[in-house]
Measured scan of single mutants.
Amino acid sequence: VTVHVDGVEYDFDNPEEALKFAKKVAEDKNGTYEVHGNQIRVT
């Protein structure tokens, strides 16, 4: 699973970890996250 944040890609073997990371980053920057299959984009 790849999490995209501001043009940087973070790869996770564990989808739950990826989702947790995306949620935290989105909260920290008052943004949102979208899941597209095995890609998660934080905006």
Rank of each mutant, 00 (worst) to 15 (best):
D13W: 09
D6N: 13
Y33M: 07
Y33K: 01
K24E: 09
K29P: 03
P15K: 13
H36L: 13
L19P: 00
A22M: 02
G7W: 04
Q39I: 15
E16L: 10
A26P: 00
F12I: 02
V35K: 06
I40C: 04
H36P: 01
D6Y: 08
A26D: 01
V3N: 01
N30Q: 10
Y10M: 04
T43G: 07
E9W: 12
K23Q: 13
N30H: 11
E9T: 14
G31D: 03
A26Q: 03
Y33Q: 02
T43Q: 11
K20P: 02
N14R: 08
K24S: 10
E27W: 12
D28W: 13
E17D: 13
G37F: 06
H36E: 13
T43K: 12
V5S: 04
D13Q: 11
R41M: 15
V25Q: 11
N14Y: 06
Y10I: 06
Q39T: 14
A22Q: 00
Y10D: 01
H4N: 09
D6E: 08
G37Q: 06
V5H: 05
K29N: 13
K20G: 07
G7E: 05
N14C: 10
K24W: 10
V5D: 04
D28C: 13
H36Q: 12
E34Y: 12
V35G: 03
Y10E: 02
A18T: 00
L19A: 04
T32G: 08
I40Y: 04
F12W: 03
K24D: 06
K20W: 10
D13G: 08
D11G: 13
E9A: 14
F12P: 00
R41T: 15
Q39K: 09
G7I: 03
Y33F: 12
K29E: 07
V25A: 12
Q39M: 12
I40K: 01
H36W: 11
A26I: 06
T2I: 11
D28A: 14
T32S: 13
H36M: 13
T43Y: 15
A18M: 00
T32N: 09
Y10V: 05
K24A: 11
V25G: 03
G31Q: 05
K24H: 08
N30P: 03
E34N: 07
K23V: 09
F21A: 00
A26H: 02
F12L: 02
G37R: 05
Y10L: 04
V8K: 12
G31K: 04
K29I: 15
D28K: 10
T2Q: 07
N14M: 06
V5W: 07
T32P: 02
V3L: 03
D6A: 07
E17N: 06
A26T: 05
A26F: 03
D6P: 02
K20Q: 12
Y33R: 01
V25E: 08
L19T: 05
H4E: 09
I40L: 04
G37D: 07
F21K: 00
N30G: 14
E17Y: 05
K29W: 15
D28I: 11
V5Y: 09
T43D: 08
V42Q: 01
R41S: 10
V42I: 12
D11A: 15
Y10A: 02
D11I: 15
D28T: 10
N14Q: 06
A18Y: 01
D28G: 10
T32R: 12
Y10R: 03
K20Y: 11
A26V: 06
V35I: 13
H4I: 14
E9I: 15
V35F: 08
N30I: 04
E16S: 09
H4T: 12
V5Q: 02
H36T: 11
T2Y: 07
K24F: 08
E34G: 04
V1N: 05
L19C: 09
Y10G: 00
A26S: 08
Y33N: 01
A22F: 02
V5K: 02
Y10W: 08
H4W: 14
N30C: 14
T32A: 09
Y10N: 03
G7D: 07
G7Y: 04
D11P: 14
A22G: 02
A18S: 02
N30Y: 07
A22D: 00
H36C: 13
V3K: 01
V1R: 05
D28R: 10
V8Q: 11
A22S: 03
V35M: 09
E16T: 09
F21L: 02
V25L: 12
V25W: 11
E27P: 02
K23Y: 05
V1H: 09
D11H: 15
V3M: 02
F12Y: 04
A22V: 04
E17H: 05
N14L: 07
G31V: 06
